[in-house]
Design a protein around this nucleic acid. Structure first.
Lengths: 193, 193, 193, 193
DNA sequence: AATGAATGAGGATTCATTCAT
DNA sequence: GATGAATGAATCCTCATTCAT
């Protein structure tokens, strides 16, 4: 009965429905970006999407689910981009650079949105779910350079680097120096003292 | 009129007033810890403090200000503890350990509270304000070991380490391995490749 | 325009239509039984019937009409069963027993449904309409035993007994003793002091 | 935490508060009487009482509780009146008359309200709670005339008579003949065949 | 200064009903 | 006729804030 309040209500099959869901998500992202979690409410999102509240609730069982969908959508896109990057680079440094570039790109595109989504992800305890993919990805990328990383626990390192990467890219640090500093943190962690 | 909504309304001079403010803050922390930002509301806090809402508003211009006071109080306490640690340790490693111990202690004492405060700090954009002290502190600690850190930009490093330290200690990583991993991240960053 | 909101919209002539109406009514009964008046809504009924809401509205002008149809259907079935019983029994007592058996059977079959329908009947002020048949029936049954009932106003008695019978059978009284008690009430009323 | 949704939220101690609660209950009764359970909603009641919704919720945890309070208030008043009557009358018939007079009075004063309250009482499953007193009362009244009632199970009879009495007085029967018919039903039940 | 009752805007969610396809 | 997506008014309830006492 009381279904999962974080999952969408039904899969939009028809083309029109998919467009509607898409419109809602786009509007939701905009509202979240401009007004923060504070100002994020279903009525506002529906209005911004040019849709009735009822329609919103047709596809999302509640405010939380909408937020969760946003988070997941972003995580998925991010994961995809990371996947590309993870397989690039002949050296550890090159791979690190590729991954960092993705992180920075993701974050600098819509900083306020990225921040709010990070926020929401924690709030909804969606971290674990989303991070599994990225963790695996990162771990794989590390494993590819095992030769350069003697004695490193890949699982552990992947987790730490994920946390560090996120935190730094989301910290508001001057974008110009961000890449250099992230690189330092990552390579330092891995090949450090 | 439109006064700073983040600052306390007036300095409580009388002893009784100070006690009242203290009681409110203690209660606020408890409420925040137990119910999260979601359940944090002025009526609840006032009740938990055994005080009337009116009195709460006598000393805090609004909910936000109360939250801000909590954040600042915590930051101050944290800063104090860090100050102690920053001056300890003959070697860089030792100093780093001392600082990390403080971070972990601060975080592990009331994890839920620490998390919510971190949350709130960001939400209220209080980061800059609070971090100034810690930044200076960290920077000083680094400077003390300048010999071991050739070519390091202390200001920059302090900022990065602060971010990294916070993120890792708040990440929910197994407390048992947390210190080791934090140390690795910090020393790696500083003395890395 | 403002048509009677309690009457069905049109007589389903086609076989398929009749089946559809039947399916809706069956589903409606089930929903009402399982979820009460509270949870009784057109969307739910339509879904339970495996029919679109639009179709439901094709045959019933509104929620109320659907409910009314349910009430009437039940009343009709009940009336039919009573008709059988009303003509049985050589003595007053025997006839009373037959009628009471029907009442109890009707009520105990789907108690929750019976209750909700009673509820709805009152809510929609359908009592008068439905009871006409039963009243006539009861009155007839009494008349058959006029010899045993000197000085009794059959119309009045029929109404009173109807009310009493319904109330008692719907009162949640232990089914084991229900018949005896109903009999006592009825015969007491009729042949009393 | 999730306290009893049927009980009031706090006892109004101050005179003003009591007046407010009283005003709310009076308004609630009026709304219920005029608009039925259908149109009974907290906003409407608050408005009718000249009070803000917030104030209503200060004293009643929800719509249901408000309704329950109304039912209980009515039941209490009714019980009180019955208590008076139950001790009157030298003969069974006289006592029965006294009780029936109270029932009729209670019902005929505000018929629509009485009906809706009966309705609500069932809806909220408050029957048992309220009826205990009346049952005991009735049982006592019967016991007082035990000599006239050989072989009668007072507990059972009290329950049956309660049900019968309510049903008849609430049935919309012509008030002029109501008393006579009720008396017949009651005495018939008790002293019948 | 303290109290806490009162306010009411705001926000989540439901569901009867319509109508374009 | 059938469909079911879309609508949005209606309703419940919360909580930041004020103000009379």
């Amino acid at each position: 009965m009381a279904a999962d309040p974080l999952s969408p209500r039904k899969q939009p099959v028809q083309a029109r429905s998919r467009a509607l869901v898409e419109a809602i998500l786009v509007a939701a992202a905009r509202v979240l970006e401009q007004s923060g979690l504070e100002g994020f409410n279903t009525n506002r999102v529906a209005e911004a999407a040019g849709v009735s509240v009822g329609s919103l609730y047709q596809y999302f069982p509640g405010k939380t689910a909408l937020l969760a969908a946003l988070v997941r959508q972003d995580a998925a896109a991010f994961g995809e981009a990371l996947t590309q990057a993870a397989n690039q680079g002949a050296t550890l440094r090159e791979t690190a650079e590729a991954l960092i570039d993705v992180m920075i790109a993701h974050q600098s595109e819509r900083p306020a949105l990225a921040r709010a989504l990070d926020f929401a992800e924690r709030d909804l305890d969606l971290e674990h779910e989303d991070d599994t993919v990225m963790l695996a990805l990162t771990q794989g990328a590390l494993a590819r350079h095992a030769a350069e990383l003697p004695g490193v626990d890949f699982a552990e390192a992947a987790q730490d680097l994920m946390v560090i990467g996120r935190a730094l890219s989301d910290s508001g640090i001057d974008p110009a120096s961000l890449k250099r500093r992230l690189l330092r943190a990552v390579l330092g962690y891995l090949t450090g003292p």
